[in-house]
Design a binder for these strands. Sequence first.
RNA 1: GGCCCGAUAGCUCAGUUGGUAGAGCAGCGGAUUGAAAAUCCGCGUGUCCCUGGUUCGAAUCCGGGUCGGGCCA
Length: 285
Amino acid sequence: MPKAVSPLFVCGATASGKTAYALRMAEELGGEIVNGDAFQLFRGIEILSAAPSEEEKKGFHHHLFGVLEPGESCDAGRYFEMAMPVISEIQSRGKTPIVVGGSGLYLKFLTHGPSPLPKGDEKMRAEMDGQTLEELLAELEAIDPVEAAQVNRGNKRYVSRSLEICRLTGEKVSELRDGWEKKTQELEKTLRGVWLIRERLDLHERIALRTKQMLSRGAIEEVSALAEIYGNWEKAIGVKEIRRFLSGEISRKECEELIVFATRQYAKRQETWFRREKWLEQLEI
RNA sequence: GGCCCGAUAGCUCAGUUGGUAGAGCAGCGGAUUGAAAAUCCGCGUGUCCCUGGUUCGAAUCCGGGUCGGGCCA
């Protein structure tokens, strides 16, 4: 049995050129591409999510692109469940899995594994959405004061998540988390990946160009085609803005501008994330 | 040509009776293991158009310019 080739992770901000770089590496290493992007998983928003085109996919196997219905929900855990078998299957054929994407949390599940914490509970989340941040904090405070002190108290999502775990397990999150996450030092030595870094101004130009192309090449049509479908996909950058354009609230120019702003801000958050992943080899591009 | 209005942060603008200025957006930095292209936290970046004057002190009041917009010719 051939020794499994460890996957190569190709990370970077949106519009930094990951797709092109990954294709080159696929050529060089004899690899196959695995999607590492939370939104390119969905079918129907290929243009909006800047998924590789049919042309680009030609020549190399591409996995996990457009595999979810737009109405489906997904999370990092489900992505992990989907991606691991794909990766080992590629390895079993002696090829190199090249995981390409910008979704930090999703990639982190692949590189570091999921925590033993329970997954999200839709019903409970709906219930907590109806509660105020103060109520949630008070409850968390009562159950797990340690967690209440260290959680990001202004972020209702995070407070809810902490409380959700307490409610689901009947235990304290802070204790459940303790012990996990410490073993990363050794683990990270075995990881292989690059972070494509592009100068900010250059990146901004690429974002502006890509946004313009997206809008003229069908992103608007994608959004209007999915008008009746609710779900995870709606949080993609551009959906909100395109809907405002379609309703006549803003002009096309404003729509484009707002998408550019949102995309730049996203790119900045991605850079903040990858900066912390010290195991990534930084590659100025 | 005459009259009127405006000029303050990258943009749109606020600024009380004179005490060297602040909002939104943009931008920058950060957090982030099960919603993550999500969500949240922090940071004001300034020839207050120029110039002379009044005043202890001018973004603010007065004179003269410059530029932009409007009205009348």
